[in-house]
């Protein structure tokens, strides 16, 4: 199995956390996994893009037209990285409002910012929320809810319950997209 994920967002939104969760999930399933995180300058609110490659890969970067999934924690950052998506079967899961333009890719859109503003979930968990949407709406996603829950627990047992709650809520919300 080969599956490539680009995670795009703004520094501080926790893209790196998702790289960690997905690589733990891969290892729990005995899959090979190679990813890169973004550190340094990008922590200061700049654009961030991280990669996770599950399966037999050798280079840590993802090339244009190759990603199966693009998780965009913010709309413009999703568009900025859109060229990485595979043209026919790639999916973008994006946090954006109704102004997000129509694009020629399979798009799952949710306005997570407005939900956070309505205090439906804490904004700090935006990354986990978008992962929940992914679990619910990307049929090719190689991990199950159970895999991800295990990975989240392994990563940080103390915070796990809160994160898993957000995950479930996102899956619930995804029904209404």
């Amino acid at each position: 199995m080969k599956y490539q994920v680009v995670i795009a967002g703004i520094g501080g939104q926790g893209a790196v956390f998702l790289v960690k969760v997905l690589s733990i999930a891969a290892s729990l399933k005995d899959q090979k996994c190679l990813g890169t995180e973004n550190h340094g300058m990008s922590q200061r609110g700049g654009s961030v893009s991280c990669y996770v490659k599950v399966g037999d890969f050798h280079s840590p970067a993802i090339d244009e037209g190759q990603a199966d999934l693009l998780i965009a924690l913010e709309g413009n950052e999703g568009l900025r990285n859109i060229q990485y998506l595979e043209k026919t079967k790639g999916t973008i899961i994006v946090n954006a409002d109704s102004k997000f333009p129509k694009i020629e890719y399979k798009t799952i859109k949710i306005d997570a910012f407005s939900k956070a503003r309505n205090k439906e979930f804490p904004i700090q968990a935006l990354n986990v929320y978008m992962l929940g949407i992914t679990l619910a709406r990307d049929p090719n996603f190689p991990f199950s809810l159970n895999d991800i829950e295990k990975a989240i627990k392994q990563m940080n047992a103390k915070m796990a319950a809160k994160n898993i709650e957000v995950l479930h809520q996102a899956i619930e919300d995804a029904r209404n997209i």
Partner: peptide
């Protein structure tokens, strides 16, 4: 093969701050 079109419209840049 490893080329794909960027999003055509201009996007606001987000430099580190």
């Amino acid at each position: 093969f490893y080329k794909s079109a960027k999003y055509a419209d201009e996007l606001p840049v987000r430099p580190p701050n």
